[in-house]
Write a protein that binds this DNA or RNA. Structure first.
Length: 576
RNA sequence: GCGAUAGUAGUCUAGCGGCAGGACAGAGGCUUCCCAAGCCUUUAGCCCGGGUUCGAAUCCCGGCUAUCGCACCA
């Protein structure tokens, strides 16, 4: 087998030439960070998304929802993207280099640079040297650069809008509706497949870092205590190469381990995270990512978001780019729901009934509003609210109102101890989030599928795509386009199409040329009608990877191909 | 965004101040008929915008895109 020197160039050349991936708006010179999926690419991407749905929607039973790509500001205030997604930047007046203002300040030993206002940062930078050219920055302007695309919603008193930087927030904001939909039971999950947008400063690496990209995300809402997956048995013995934090620090290789072992050893935080690591591995391998070039890497504590209990990335090995993240699987705890509850003021909790209701003795504080009103006037409401939360002593209680400590004598309120029957508790679920980058998956599949063989001294380019993601599923060819072979071949193509098989009919040129055309776009099977077909009603079926052929009865063809494509039938079992 | 390099047909490439050439791919035809055979015909190109020049694919400037390095990458 020929070892490709630069497989990226070859894959992208093929992808462009055969209609998988095109530069967007190419007639106007193209745009960095935006790509078009051509006819075969769009088809393959759809099949990859559908393979994903087969796992998450059909098997896991997580319904798919679809939210707008434009969102109002509070959503992204709550999610942290308005603040956290924006970088304080400045441009050096001498060399015109763009710099991260907070990094420059922090690099010079200034504390708290990350939290400073633009004005404060500009003040700090005045005396500092530019990290690029070394000149003093002087009167430098610091500005916010937010990675979110922004826009306005409606005319007139416009509302600020952002293109979503991830699909997840739509699921979080639908939480109360979803909870009702799933009839108030945990765990439940919802998924979303769609476009997200990040205005990358400098997108590179082809379709690896895009400004508009497709995500497939699942948000699984689980009870915060006891993160045991009800179907953990499915993957308990499934082995995955895991590269934990300590292994990375020790520069060790990933270790293959069963998911049960990983959880028992404490390498993976809980069964949920482990379950979705295994499921992710299952999906990625099924769409054609080479298992030998796939690993799961745990986020180091320094790169992990502070609220995440655990986070693992599925990474594929690219010849060109090294290890590239495809999927992030995180236990986000209750961070997102808490944040949205805080900004929206809506309780985002689930009511979990107790198996046996219990009686609790509760102390209630009843403020005497008749007395508080005249005494505190405008602040009476605040005092009362503070009282309800307070823990009174014998002589009264001290509460804080507007930063002021106020002593409230016991005469201004009543303390009542009462028995309350507790039938359940409100819990804020934790979120397990597997988040997939579909475009990167498409690239990974293309790169891992691309092979070059030498056949009788000729280069044969083959995309060894799994049948389930191949854009075209079968080629149908008359050996020659005369003597009625072409007519029969067309009938067979129609029969396959009628059976839901995506088929290309091709009668032009030599038969070998037609096989190669289909090899190059990854078509797994080719059906050829020859003179024997006219005699005994059989056709040949050729398998792309082995180039082997078997004869199959015409009538059995649609069922046979369906079985081959679905993977329920092995090519080697045919004709026996 | 900065710096370097590059951009010629669908793809790859030659030409580097004076008529833009080839290979492969595509289309049509002849021929052969199970793995890119052959022959004939044919489609199709100088990234965009300025400038210099009698004349620019070629030189200069700006832009866009790509690759690499720097920076950036919730």
């Amino acid at each position: 087998m020929a070892e490709p020197d630069d497989i990226y160039e070859k894959v992208m050349e093929l992808a462009k030439r055969r209609g998988f991936i095109w530069p967007s708006a190419e007639i106007y010179g193209g745009v960095a960070g935006l790509i078009d999926y051509g006819p075969l690419g769009a088809q393959m991407k759809r099949r990859i998304e559908d393979a994903w749905r087969a796992f998450y929607v059909i098997r896991e039973g997580f319904y798919e929802i679809e939210c707008p790509t434009v969102g109002i500001e509070p959503i992204y205030v709550a999610s942290g993207h308005v603040k956290g997604f924006s970088d304080k930047m400045c441009q050096c007046p001498h060399c015109e280099e763009y710099l991260r203002a907070d990094h420059v300040a922090a690099g010079a030993g200034i504390d708290g640079a990350a939290g400073m206002t633009t004005e404060a940062l500009a003040g700090c930078l005045r005396m500092l040297p530019c990290t690029a050219c070394g000149e003093e920055l002087g009167e430098v302007k610091v500005f916010d650069f937010n990675l979110m695309f922004n826009t306005w919603i409606g005319p007139g008193s416009q509302r600020k809008g952002y293109l979503r930087p991830e699909t997840a927030q739509g699921i979080f904001t639908d939480f109360p509706r979803l909870l009702r939909f799933y009839r108030d039971k945990l765990p439940f999950g919802a998924v979303q497949v769609g476009k997200s947008y990040r205005n990358e400063i400098s997108p590179r690496q082809g379709m690896i870092r895009l400004r508009e990209f497709t995500q497939a995300e699942a948000e699984i809402f689980v009870h915060p205590e006891g993160k045991r997956h009800p179907r953990f048995d499915r993957y308990a013995l499934y082995e995955v190469p895991l590269l934990g934090c300590s292994a990375q620090e020790a520069k060790e290789e990933p270790v293959r381990m069963t998911m049960r072992e990983a959880v028992e050893k404490g390498l993976v935080a809980n069964e949920y995270v482990a379950y979705y690591i295994a499921l992710t591995c299952d999906i990625l391998v099924s769409i054609g990512v080479d298992p030998a070039r796939l690993r799961f890497r745990q986020h180091l504590t320094t790169e992990r978001a502070h609220y995440a209990a655990d986070c693992w990335d599925a990474e594929f090995l690219s010849k060109r780019f090294g290890w590239v993240e495809l999927v992030g699987i995180a236990d986000r705890t209750d961070y997102d729901l808490k944040a949205h509850a805080g900004v929206s003021g809506v309780a985002l909790t689930a009511y979990i009934p107790l198996e046996t209701p219990r009686v609790e003795r509760r102390r209630r504080i009843l403020p005497d509003m008749k007395a508080l009103g005249p005494k505190f006037r405008g602040k009476a409401k605040q005092v009362a609210d503070a009282l309800v939360e307070a823990d009174p002593g014998p002589g009264g209680v001290e509460v804080t109102v507007d930063g002021e400590k106020v002593l409230i004598p016991a005469s201004l309120y009543q303390v009542r101890d009462e028995d309350v029957e507790v039938r359940g508790v409100e819990v804020m679920p934790h979120v397990i989030e597997p988040s997939y980058g579909i475009d990167r998956m498409c690239y990974a599949v293309l790169e891992h599928a691309y092979t070059e063989d030498m056949v009788e001294g000729e280069l044969r380019r083959v995309l060894r795509l799994p049948a389930r993601v191949a854009p075209v599923q079968a080629g149908v060819f008359p050996l020659v386009s005369r003597d009625g072979l072409d007519r029969v071949a067309r009938e067979i193509a129609d029969a396959l199409t009628g059976a839901g098989i995506f088929t290309e009919f091709d009668e032009s040129g030599a038969i070998g040329r037609r096989y190669r055309r289909q090899d190059e776009i990854g078509t797994p099977y080719a059906v050829t009608v020859d003179y024997q077909t006219l005699e005994d009603g059989t056709v040949t079926v050729r398998e792309r990877d082995s180039m082997a052929q078997v004869r199959v009865k015409r009538a059995a063809l649609p069922g046979t191909l369906q079985g081959l494509i679905a993977g329920t039938l092995a090519f080697s079992s045919l004709g026996k």
